[in-house]
Write a protein that binds this DNA or RNA. Structure first.
Length: 264
DNA sequence: ATCTATTCCTGGCTGC
DNA sequence: TGCAGCCAGGAATAGA
């Protein structure tokens, strides 16, 4: 499941191949992965060069001087440079003799293309690395809901998914059902620090390869070996040894340490 | 504002 | 061994 660290690693692995290259054409093999109007716009972008490839939240942005292509990999999507197309190849971006494949078993991935940023990207919340502790606390102010669903909300903060929310809450020793707006200043600041630390360490480890994730060169990440709670139901908490618990929050599997993250 | 259920999709797992 | 049935899950959507 590509979240912010995985998407960042994908973008970094593709940047040397893609930036400055002229897009010669796009072959949409599974129409489902193209957002409405995207296929036509990609046709118009053909012939122009990729100025930059960037990450915004979990989106990969290909910027051209006449438009933008935004790709979201959802859960099983992969972007692969010069791989062999297969049954799961949903789109092929051709750059002369080279090609960038969008592979996705489940076809949940989406390609957007248009003259400027699509709404889905425009309405994202701030980038974690661009948000100060004070800014984070300000965004928590007045929130009535529980902290985990809020951290999963991409309009609140862009880039976190199920893995990094659980890992961040564990590091900050906050229960996933804690009231978001009632976190004390020290606890909110601890959560902000935990989010940044987890994301930085995950990027440095090449992301988490839980199910299908690989970067643009097909390399797996190593951060899954450093997960402290995610997916570790019944195993000992690395901090205190208590068995990790699994509950369901917002229809998502949620792992936490009942001793380090008490409900209060 | 916040919550829940539903939908999309298919490999992998469970249980008989 | 075979197969039906269920599950996971990011995000949009509808409805409460």
């Amino acid at each position: 499941m590509p979240e912010l660290p995985e998407v960042e690693c994908i973008v970094r692995s593709l940047r040397p191949h893609v930036e400055g290259r002229r897009l010669s054409g796009v072959d949409i093999r599974s129409p489902r992965v193209a957002a409405p109007g995207a296929a036509a716009w990609l046709g118009r972008l053909a012939g122009s060069a990729v100025l930059r490839i960037e990450r915004r939240g979990k989106f990969i942005l290909l910027q051209f001087d006449s438009g933008i292509c935004a790709i979201h990999l959802r859960m099983t999507g992969r972007l692969l440079w010069n791989a062999i197309p297969g049954a799961w190849t949903r789109a092929v971006f051709a750059f002369g003799q080279d090609r960038l494949l969008l592979d996705d078993i489940r076809q949940f991935a989406r390609i957007h293309a248009g003259p400027q940023l699509p709404d889905e990207v425009a309405r994202l919340g701030p980038e974690p690395f661009a948000l100060t502790a004070a800014g984070f606390r300000a965004r928590l102010q007045g929130r009535r809901g529980r902290i985990k669903p809020l951290l999963l909300d991409q309009s609140f903060l862009a880039g976190l998914g199920n893995i990094y929310v659980d890992e961040s809450l564990h590091r900050a020793r906050i229960h996933p059902l804690a009231q978001a707006g009632r976190l004390s200043r020290p606890r909110a600041e601890a959560l902000h620090r935990a989010i940044l630390a987890v994301l930085e360490e995950a990027i440095a480890a090449g992301g988490s390869s839980i199910s299908d994730y690989v970067d643009g060169a097909g390399r797996k990440g190593g951060f899954q070996r450093l997960h402290r709670v995610y997916g570790r139901h019944g195993q000992p908490c690395p901090d205190c040894g208590a068995p990790v618990r699994r509950i369901v929050v917002a229809q998502r599997g949620t792992w936490f340490c009942p001793r380090c993250q008490p409900r209060r």
